[in-house]
């Protein structure tokens, strides 16, 4: 499933995408030509909670980490591991994506049954 074009996520920035059938958005973070994708779901509370403070605003002020703007938890962009905050040591759920030869960012597979809201 196509989410957007690579050049629609600016280098060093993040964007959130609603995917039909998925309860939570998918976050894309771009670092150069690499794209990291996670579910917009902070692991602090059971069931997960949305992390942005405003549409597409998923990063901390310095742009070094994904942040949950509930309680300020910080997650490594490359691994999704929480390195500070209430869910210390837990991870964001990765979403498998690929960049197509034509420059589209695509989810590798359709959402699994248990992910459907």
């Amino acid at each position: 499933m196509r989410l957007c074009r690579l050049d629609e996520v600016l280098d060093g920035q993040a964007r959130g995408f609603s995917v039909p059938g998925l309860q939570r958005k998918v976050i894309l973070v771009r670092r150069g030509v690499s794209v990291f994708a996670y579910r917009d779901s902070c692991p602090h509370y059971e069931g997960g909670t949305p992390m942005a403070w405003k549409a597409d605003r998923y990063l901390n002020g310095e742009g070094t980490h994904l942040a949950c703007h509930s309680h300020g938890a910080l997650f490594e962009i490359e691994t999704g591991e929480c390195v500070l905050g209430p869910c210390l040591g837990q991870r964001l759920t990765k979403v498998p994506v690929r960049i197509s030869p034509s420059g589209d960012i695509e989810m590798v597979r359709e959402p699994a049954e248990e992910e459907l809201g």
């Binding site: 949305p50 992390m51 942005a52 403070w53 605003r57 002020g61 942040a67 949950c68 703007h69 509930s70 309680h71 300020g72």
Partner: peptide
Amino acid sequence: YFNSPLGTH
């Protein structure tokens, strides 16, 4: 309640 960039609701 709302999320915020101040790390609190």
